[in-house]
């Protein structure tokens, strides 16, 4: 139990460091999607530091677990996590969206080590993940596929084509994590286009579903340790999260989808995160 506690503390500290670095990066670049980044950070950190079998020194190892960021606009959180995990130097984050940088506003697998597929348009990650999971099974390999989707992007029909097929093919080596922050670019998801009852929808499509607090590392570690929940069924983890998590004035505000903080806001946000880190 102590070990678990230590690991949870370690992940929380790392997530805080990733949040601060991401905030700095977006502030410097004057571009990014801070709201969704902060919502997804705890999930990304849990995956890269405690769950995924990946090796930053050999990112293309055939037997690696695959992670796909379907909500590609949260590249900032992914890059910052990848850099902390050692996929590329932390200093390179300073080049984010600068001319000729590898770090585009959306991830490019041909440039950034650790990226599996190019995302940006929504509803692309899950179909690719289904193909990857099929490949793992066809080649009798053991690697698993994890895909992080936004909740708003579940309005794209392609997700449900993929959801149907994952259950049909009984892909219990596939895990989708829904970053359920209940906000999309302009408004609440439920005011824009209803997603609830979301867990029931996934269940109806043949998935085994559990909900967790997507900012609670103990819950995240526990749920990831139990996948697949059911043999022969793909796994859906609905991670209840807050857009802008960790910065009080950003939290749960649609306006911070891709707003860039001014210097006062940046200082205030950093101060909040630093206080938590102490």
């Amino acid at each position: 139990m102590d070990l678990d506690r230590q690991q949870v503390d370690k992940l929380a500290k790392l997530a805080n460091a990733v949040r601060r670095r991401d905030l700095q990066m977006i502030y410097n670049a004057k571009l990014g999607h801070i709201g969704g980044d902060l919502s997804a950070t705890d999930i990304l950190v849990a995956l890269y530091f405690a769950v995924l079998h990946v090796d930053p020194r050999t990112p293309n190892l055939p037997d690696r677990d695959r992670f796909i960021l379907s909500k590609g606009h949260c590249a900032g959180a992914l890059y910052t996590t990848l850099a902390h995990a050692g996929f590329f130097p932390l200093e390179e984050l300073d080049t984010f969206v600068q001319p000729l940088s590898r770090l585009n506003g959306h991830p490019d697998r041909n440039k950034v080590p650790g990226v599996e597929t190019n995302t940006g348009p929504l509803g692309h990650g899950l179909p690719v993940a289904v193909g990857s999971a099929l490949a793992s099974r066809l080649t009798e390999a053991m690697w698993r596929v994890f895909v992080l989707t936004g909740d708003g992007e579940l309005q794209e029909g392609s997700n449900w084509e993929a959801a149907m097929s994952a259950a049909h093919f009984q892909l219990d080596n596939l895990v989708v994590i829904v970053d359920r922050n209940r906000l999309q670019q302009g408004d609440l998801t439920e005011r824009t286009m209803h997603l609830d009852p979301l867990a029931d929808k996934w269940r109806a499509f043949g998935w085994s579903v559990q909900e967790v607090d997507g900012h609670d590392h103990a819950q995240l570690l526990d749920v990831f340790s139990r996948v697949p929940f059911e043999s022969g069924k793909p796994t859906c983890i609905i991670a209840n999260t807050h857009k802008g998590k960790g910065v009080s004035f950003m939290q749960d505000k649609a306006a911070w989808h891709h707003k860039v903080p001014n210097s006062e806001e940046f200082a205030a946000a950093l101060k909040e995160l630093e206080e938590v880190a102490l």
């Binding site: 055939p62 695959r66 599996e116 597929t117 509803g123 692309h124 899950l126 179909p127 690719v128 993940a129 289904v130 193909g131 990857s132 999971a133 099929l134 490949a135 793992s136 066809l138 080649t139 390999a141 596929v145 029909g157 392609s158 084509e161 993929a162 149907m164 097929s165 049909h168």
Partner: peptide, 18 residues
């Protein structure tokens, strides 16, 4: 099945798996 968007994504994923 009759799902072309998924079909192309699945193709890309299969290629990702070698």
């Amino acid at each position: 099945g009759i799902a072309e968007q998924n079909m192309i994504g699945v193709g890309a994923g299969l290629a990702n798996g070698g």
